[in-house]
Write a protein that binds this DNA or RNA. Structure first.
Lengths: 211, 211, 211, 211
DNA sequence: TATGAATGAGAGTTCATTCAT
DNA sequence: CATGAATGAACTCTCATTCAT
């Protein structure tokens, strides 16, 4: 409703306005992250997000159409961060396997730094009515982007015969599933040891198997 | 509230009553499964479960204290089924690795037969207030039983040097994470191909690695 | 619905049945008194009365049409007891003023023995819809009978010029109001001193005034 | 929940807001009085109070935490009014006995103007769970303030030897009991004659007794 | 006659969202 | 732009009452 950015903000005044708008939007996203992470979607009150962000309840609706959209926007935001982090860490890789290792490591790092959020990332899902304007559908798109980072790495490794022939998405799934499951397990046990420590074990297991 | 089984149902009449009670309880659980699977916890209306079960709304409360308890009971029920299925399929295993393969297979079978439910099994979680009587805490207990089935298989295999030395729960996590991720991926893509077909690939990958 | 007594129970068998019915009705009334006294009308659950009486919930409805009727019946029962007690204690009076004193005393005695019940007697009232079958209207009738006992005593005293000329119901109100207010005050303060001790003071004040 | 007045409403804007809030709160109290008086606590629907006040159902909860709190607030409000009225009418008294007469008169006046409400004042009572935040406990406090007005008058009269030696609260109870009983009697009979007319009779009877 | 499982209407309360200021 | 008071739809759970056994 009020979420779009105008196409061409030419004048410096308009630019400044645009930038301010972005800033405030991010304030709200940050507040939303804290509250959603603590309470989950349904237990979170818009009022509380507003307070946390230092705004009045109504103000949020100037930046996000509704609660669901805000929730989805937060996911997208986080996934973008995650993708950016993984890509940044993966970039300097010397070879595909090193890239894979770096990806795993980056993934764990991000988990370590966002454990509260990930508690929900893995679990919670809005029940999108299949309407076109379901805010969740865009999240899925972004998720796929994230997943594709792994898939690409796998495929590159396959091309160099560093990984076996197999559907790349299955291999990527294996790796991601392992990562996630480790993270969930740690969460369930309430452990606070950083996950990054598992990087080597995970890579080794993925590459060489459990035998 | 009225969910317990009496300690000594001596008389045949009492036995019959107990059995009928169980039957009706299961009717409700079955109805709850259908509705919860379709709508998720929060979108589900008790009224609808009642209708689906062919009872009046109030009747449910004769068998389950409240919505959360019903939800948790359903999870427990399902996990029990799953454990039973996996254990049954695993029992005739000739050696630990065969057991592992059978477990993977059984897991996939169960997924194939309960895909709607599993959509939530992996994702949804009640926000347990840390009160002792949080119905969810028992679910966690049951989940652990399920996880332990895998852990035990892994440990038995390790004893026979069929699997590498490594914390058994990590190996089990790897396997389970892979299974779950495959299932989720299939769900996301809306594929209806049975998951069981992936059994061999998963085992092979788990045992021998991606190289 | 099932509350009426047949007009002419001739046969001994019918008589016995009638008597048994009365007995069970009283069981229920006694149980109702305990629970209503403790919880008040709205907080009382029919189930609890049934349990307290050693019957099943449905059984109550064989003796009382509904909750309100039971409540009213209890009041009537109690007022009858009270009237009986006051009349019995008043009967041996030598002169009207002695009668008055005995009435006051009897009233206090009854309060002392039924304080729990009186907590509600003075305060709680059903909101009778003015329909003819409001169970409460009969209670009012009985209350009037009780009040009339006092009025009669006052009038007899007036005839003998022992009390001033004034509308007898006002004098009786004065006396009753005083009694009730004392009782309420004691209840509010949570005192457990018997009220009977106030008899002489009350009579003296009523007869001779506060000067 | 949202009933408190801030400690320092400095700015005129804040003052205006505070005042408006009070106004609206009183609108609701007035509406509540009408409905509660007609139906009693349990038969009253929040919806109806809201309608009567010209608000939506939810709005009430911005001013009162819940139904019970609203009910109690109404009582407190009324008792404050009553105390104010009685004190105002009593102030110009020349001597303690005149003060007593004025108090009785004021009491009757208030009854005459608030008969509907008083129907409940004497009778209805919430079942206060003994929790500290039972809204009813404050009502009791206010009631005591009201009662003390009478007690003080009595004590002042006793100091000047205008009333006999006796526990002041008993004398005050006698007087109040009489007043209330007269009022109840009138109500029961459905009389519409103003109660004020009984002032002299009541005072005379209280001071000089029934003989 | 007694039972008690089933009924189902009913109401208090919350909270996302709007809109006049 | 920001506000926050007002809205009102929506939903869980209770419990008096019934009726098949």
């Amino acid at each position: 409703m009020a979420t779009q950015t105008k196409a061409k903000p030419a004048s410096p005044a308009a630019l400044r306005k645009e930038r301010d708008r972005h800033l405030r939007r991010n304030d709200i996203l940050a507040a939303a992250e804290r509250v959603f992470a603590e309470k989950g979607f349904h237990e979170t009150r818009m009022e509380q997000i507003a307070q946390e962000a230092g705004y009045a309840a109504g103000t949020i609706y100037l930046y996000f159409a509704d609660k669901e959209t805000l929730y989805a926007a937060l996911f997208i935001h986080k996934i973008e961060e995650m993708v950016a982090h993984v890509e940044a860490e993966t970039a300097p890789a010397t070879d595909p396997l090193d890239g894979l290792r770096r990806a795993v490591r980056a993934q764990f790092e991000f988990h370590d730094q966002n454990s509260a959020f990930f508690n929900h990332f893995v679990r919670q899902r809005l029940h999108g009515s299949p309407g076109k304007d379901d805010p969740w559908s865009e999240v899925v798109l972004h998720y796929r982007r994230h997943f594709n980072v792994l898939v690409n790495l796998v495929e590159r490794a396959q091309k160099r015969k560093l990984l076996r022939k197999a559907p790349s998405h299955l291999l990527a799934s294996a790796l991601l599933g392992f990562i996630i499951q480790i993270a969930r397990g740690a969460q369930r046990e309430g452990k606070s040891t950083p996950l990054v420590g598992h990087t080597d074990f995970v890579c080794d297991l993925f590459l060489n198997g459990a035998t």
